[in-house]
Nucleic acid binder design. Structure first.
Lengths: 199, 199
DNA sequence: TGTATTCGAACGAACGTTCGATTCCTATCA
DNA sequence: TGATAGGAATCGAACGTTCGTTCGAATACA
């Protein structure tokens, strides 16, 4: 779908700079300089600066659709929690920008939050809440657990881990080879936390 | 410590507008209009727009010092987790702006992140990790739990809950009277999750 | 040859800051 | 007590800069 080298380069630098400093924090002169083009290319290819931001945002959030495929493939609730953790870890590991866009839009929403961001957050939480609800019906999770709150707690634990590691590198050693262990640890904490018995 | 009505009003509107849209997202004309003063008052009272932002940030983050008093007062590790949850819930309930500043600085750091924000995050996590470590020594928490990761998971669960409720009001019914129940629920999830036995 | 792409210059608007004039407050003195 | 001097506080206007966008010319491509 990428048309020209200029278009592609602007998407790249837009992704990097917007994720670090937000929509208002980056000027088109800075973007075009980093992309090695002229400032008029942004309006030409994307209509406006906000158009570039929107294009980047859409590209970043496309991966959230995967939750539905995972939900269809994985039937067991506990296994679904593990799949979510692995999926989320993978997402953040091979895309360091996604979490910044996600959290930045949550905290300081732009005009694109409601149409672009809100729906995907909603889908993920609702999907996971559904899986947890099913786990409760199967007596695998405790009855007194609120599915939506539990889904938020799960998402909170893992997203916040990466959020903190964005800034406080000294607190966390985040080597990819330790991911397997971390996923297992978070899975343990969570399933023990809401589980009727340990798994 | 507040000098004049103008100074006080600028702090108020600065807190509200900066928290919603960030440092770059608010202009001094917008600030002064909302405060009912002239634009020159910002430079007069705070030196610059960034000076106002810094003043607001310092005021917002002052409350994080309380974690030390709590740690001194509460000796039992499990009780410390509960105190942390109650403290955090209370903090977010009576100050809707704090979490936005906190998360915004984490995601899109300004020049004030390193000197002002980073230290307080560090202190809270280290303090809670210390409490959890003591819990492990007392055989109240499992041996294979990493204290820092567990502290991050705890902070993640509860902060993310409020972060989500900032934007997705439809997902969560956040009535203050339910806080007691929510705190207990998060405490259950967490202490069960890392605990050697349920409490 | 004609369409798509890129560039550099220029535009008006909005930005944060500065500055002289004015108002407000308070301590001081007749 | 009433007048007043002086400093603090506030205002409105203007400054120079940066912002995002536009546009005609130039280039590349098919």
């Amino acid at each position: 779908m990428e048309k020209t080298e200029c278009h592609k380069k602007l998407m790249e630098v837009g992704t990097q700079l917007f994720s670090e400093r937000g929509l208002k924090g980056v000027s088109i002169r800075e973007l075009s300089l980093a992309a090695g083009t002229s400032i008029s290319m942004i309006s030409y290819h994307f209509g406006s600066k906000e158009g570039l931001y929107q294009a980047v945002l859409q590209q970043q959030f496309a991966c959230f659709k995967e939750i539905h495929e995972i939900r269809e493939r994985v039937t067991d609730p506990v296994e679904m929690v593990k799949s979510y953790l692995l999926w989320t870890f993978g997402r953040h590991r091979n895309n360091p920008y996604l979490l910044r866009f996600y959290t930045s839009e949550l905290t300081n929403p732009t005009a694109f939050f409601e149409p672009l961001v809100m729906p995907v957050i909603d889908e993920v939480i609702v999907t996971m809440a559904g899986a947890i609800e099913e786990g409760i019906r199967q007596k695998k999770f405790r009855e007194d657990v609120d599915p939506t709150n539990a889904a938020l707690a799960l998402a909170g634990m893992v997203n916040y881990f990466f959020l903190s590691s964005l800034a406080t590198r000294n607190l966390i050693s985040h080597s990819p080879e330790k991911d397997e262990m971390l996923v297992q640890q978070y899975l343990d904490i969570f399933t023990r936390g809401i589980g009727a018995s340990s798994v």
